[in-house]
Amino acid sequence: MGERLLECIDIHHSFGDQLILKGINLKVYNGDFISIIGKSGSGKSTLMDILSGFLKPEKGKIDCDCKCSSVFQNYSTSLYPHMNVQQNIIFPFESKNKEIQDKCDYYIQMVGLYEHRKKLPKELSGGMQQRVAIARALAQEPDLLFLDEPFGSIDFFTKNNLQQEILEIREKLNLTIVLVTHNIDEAIFLSNKILYLSETKKTFIKQLNIDILYPRNLVKTTTSNLFNQYKRELLNLYSK
């Protein structure tokens, strides 16, 4: 187990009278790939907003000593339409010096979009736009990366490629990742820990450790017996 990067202690949150999260406790260690799963309306995205610092929890504490960055669910609105690929990635930086520009270009290259760097988001496909969002998050050189359903609105083949790429980037950059998803297959394939957020209890009711070795191959992993065993276990939780 690596060094602790983030800890949530007894997080509570509600919107008006509606309780969304109740007593969330979470520890994220260096090297983790944690997936938070749950049904629609279970509060996954609210939790992600709290973790990424966008939302202040009503009650509870978040201890985070590391640099974080985020990739959002909706790629079409998470990129600024008036900025090209390069400008979108460099925008979060105050300074735009040569070093920063080179760093941004490095990550654009990493996600395979170097020849598209002068294009506007509208000139790119959905998968390419999500790659830009990933490159923008990576350019911040985070220790911890939050992914909020990043493959949700992408076609099957692009999604598979992106998932494989995410694993490769994680390996290369030694990234710790927290992913929110409603897709069980995606969660098992990518992560080493899965947390199930219950829509009725508003808290995690299950932690599942995925003991499949990295590097993972999509076909081999998803057709293995272990994969199906985890899937059955999670499906049982979903159907309850």
Partner: peptide, 25 residues
């Protein structure tokens, strides 16, 4: 678009730059 502002906030972009580079365009 709320996501434009959310993105800017998550990346800790200051109000002046949000106004100039996000809200105005």
């Amino acid at each position: 678009e709320p996501q434009f502002l959310k993105t800017a906030k998550v990346f800790n972009i200051n109000q002046g730059r949000i106004l100039k580079n996000v809200i105005f365009p």
